[in-house]
Write a protein that binds this DNA or RNA. Sequence first.
DNA 1: CGACTTTGACCCGCGC
DNA 2: GCGCGGGTCAAAGTCG
Length: 155
Amino acid sequence: MPDFELSDYLMLDDDDTYSSQSMASLEKGVAAATEFSGATSKNSSIKCKKGVGVRVAFRMKSELEVIDDGYKWRKYGKKSIKNCPNPRNYYKCSTGGCDVKKRIERDINDESYVITTYDGVHNHETPSMLYYNQMPLMAPNAWTLQPPSSSSSST
DNA sequence: CGACTTTGACCCGCGC
DNA sequence: GCGCGGGTCAAAGTCG
């Protein structure tokens, strides 16, 4: 588990535009993350122009491009983008019945940053979410939590 | 043996 | 109509 920090979260609006919010309110970004993952649409600003699903982009500082948000992602493609020196990775939720896609690419300005774009809404809770529910407290960054089975560095 | 990752090829949409 | 770019699928290989 590398130490990555949520730098910016981009809310792609229905006008194909996105609002790049500074990390002035990280909780808000996490809230957005909870929004799309929990399918709780109290904020209708997060939606795709096609109306077929939600599209949310996050930019976070991480050494690894793959962010374990609790879901199981299966890589189904890799593509080198002309405008980007780094290839873009395509992931799909491997959970049955879930058709959420995730695009991951490195920031062209800062390779230390990774841009993760979620496309769609999970029709199920994150497997780890079940684990969260058993926790006495809900950490604001719980979506970054991982089960103790994976690299438990609790020393 | 099953699941997942990797890489190339193919297809679709958009712009010129 | 053609070319380019982007996105997705499929087959093979590897690891657990």
